[in-house]
């Protein structure tokens, strides 16, 4: 595969560019936002969806609508989200949400090199979706899908189309080490929340609020 080094180079360049842009962009001004605030929620199998729905369960009505993104093969997440939203609609009458499917970023046994390719593909796929939804805030907790989504949100910001707040909550399963998504998004998120003190020590920029799921 001769194209691979070029693709890897391009990917590295893109990440470097995003990181520079991130550092150069002024630190968010803290002018209060007005409700409602549209939310983009990245769900994912392996417990990610369960955890993120728990986080959502405590949010007020001001966080609406909620746009869910999940891998097209992930029927279980879709069912959980529907059940969650049905329950929520019983409490809040004007509850709004949408469901959005994207191709899966990294299959479990896939090798690293081709996962770079599919990640690039996912970014291409994610950008129009993020552009269309233009969320105020992205909430994610680690499925591979969340990296391309957050990167395309940064592109929106670089292109001065929309300022998106990225909130990353590392899974409760991560006690001492970050997930791959976490390692990347540590540098790109506005608020990076961990749920164990050992991670807070290793990653000083992170926020520790105790166990929140």
């Amino acid at each position: 595969m001769d194209a691979l080094p070029a693709v890897l180079g391009a990917a590295a360049l893109l990440l470097l560019l995003l990181l520079t842009a991130r550092l150069l962009l002024a630190r968010r001004n803290s002018s209060p936002r007005t409700a409602p605030l549209s939310l983009l929620v990245v769900a994912g199998s392996g417990g990610h969806t369960t955890e993120i729905l728990r986080l959502l369960s405590s949010l007020s009505q001001s966080y609406s609508p909620r746009h869910y993104i999940f891998a097209d093969s992930d029927k279980m997440s879709e069912d959980k989200i529907r059940t969650f939203e049905q329950k929520r609609a019983e409490t809040f009458s004007n509850s709004q949400f949408t469901l959005n499917r994207i191709p899966r970023c990294r299959e479990v046994c896939q090798s690293w090199s081709s996962s770079v390719l599919t990640t690039l593909y996912s970014i291409l796929y994610s950008f129009p979706l993020t552009f269309r939804l233009k969320p105020d805030l992205i909430l994610c907790n680690g499925p591979g899908t969340c990296v391309p989504i957050c990167i395309s949100a940064l592109l929106l910001e670089i292109l001065a189309l929309k300022k998106v707040i990225i909130v990353y909550v590392e899974s409760i399963c991560r006690v001492e080490t970050l997930s791959l998504s976490g390692k990347i998004l540590y540098y790109f998120s506005d608020y990076f929340i961990v749920q164990w003190p050992a991670l807070k020590e290793k990653y000083p920029k992170s926020i520790y609020l105790g166990r929140i799921v």
């Binding site: 405590s58 949010l59 001001s62 608020y191 929340i193 105790g210 799921v213």
Partner: peptide, 13 residues
């Protein structure tokens, strides 16, 4: 777990 702490944090920031 205490998701309400997360909600309070988010409301604040």
């Amino acid at each position: 777990g205490q998701p309400e702490k997360f909600a309070a944090f988010l409301d604040r920031v």
